[in-house]
Simulated scan of single mutants.
Amino acid sequence: MKFEYMGIDHIQLAAPKGCEEEARKFWGEIVGLTEVQKPESLQGRGGCWFQYGNQQIHIGVEEDFLPAKKAHPAFVIGNIEDFRLHLEGNGIKTKEDAPIDGRARFFVNDPFGNRVEFLEYK
């Protein structure tokens, strides 16, 4: 093979028009990601982008928005139980799912109903 995968640049989640304020509160203030400026050529589309390490999550406006209830991003977290308490303390409901050996994990819904997983390797 003459090519190789280098990593994931970004994940995009859809949201309804006018989502930016709620997205900034959830992804920026509560989850703690850093907002980054969208390229000028994309700013008229709405939405906002956030960064963690070398990866980004893009919240994009979708005209006929429906939340992703099964497909989801999964974020690796250190000290996941402290993070869970932080989320719950900010009014975010966490949900358990089937256990996976070697991982502690839970799910939340973003303000738009998209499923998001947080996990820690044990």
Rank of each mutant, 00 (worst) to 15 (best):
A23M: 03
A23L: 00
A23E: 00
K25D: 01
K25G: 01
K25E: 06
K25I: 05
W27T: 01
G28Y: 01
E29D: 07
E29L: 05
V31A: 00
G32M: 08
L33C: 12
L33R: 04
T34V: 12
T34Y: 09
E35S: 08
V36K: 10
V36L: 11
K38N: 01
S41R: 11
L42K: 05
Q43T: 02
Q43C: 03
G44F: 04
R45K: 14
G46K: 02
G47P: 04
G47E: 05
C48E: 00
W49P: 00
Q51E: 11
G53W: 02
N54W: 12
N54L: 14
Q55P: 07
Q56M: 13
I57C: 06
I57G: 01
H58F: 09
H58I: 03
I59Y: 00
V61L: 06
E62H: 01
E63K: 08
E63P: 00
P67M: 11
A68S: 15
K69Q: 05
K69H: 08
K69A: 07
K70S: 06
K70Q: 07
K70F: 10
H72G: 06
H72W: 08
P73W: 01
A74S: 13
F75S: 06
F75N: 04
V76F: 13
I77H: 09
N79R: 05
D82A: 15
D82T: 12
D82L: 14
D82K: 14
F83I: 09
F83M: 10
R84A: 14
L85S: 15
L85T: 14
L85W: 13
E88I: 07
E88P: 06
N90R: 07
N90V: 02
N90M: 03
G91W: 05
G91Q: 04
G91E: 02
G91Y: 06
G91R: 02
I92E: 09
K93L: 14
T94S: 03
K95M: 15
E96N: 14
D97Y: 14
A98S: 15
A98Y: 15
A98V: 15
P99L: 03
P99Y: 07
I100R: 09
D101Y: 13
R103L: 15
R103T: 12
A104T: 15
A104H: 15
F106W: 10
F107C: 11
F107K: 08
F107M: 12
F107P: 05
V108R: 01
V108G: 03
D110C: 11
P111M: 06
P111Y: 09
P111W: 10
F112I: 01
G113L: 02
N114D: 05
N114Q: 04
R115Q: 15
R115V: 12
R115A: 13
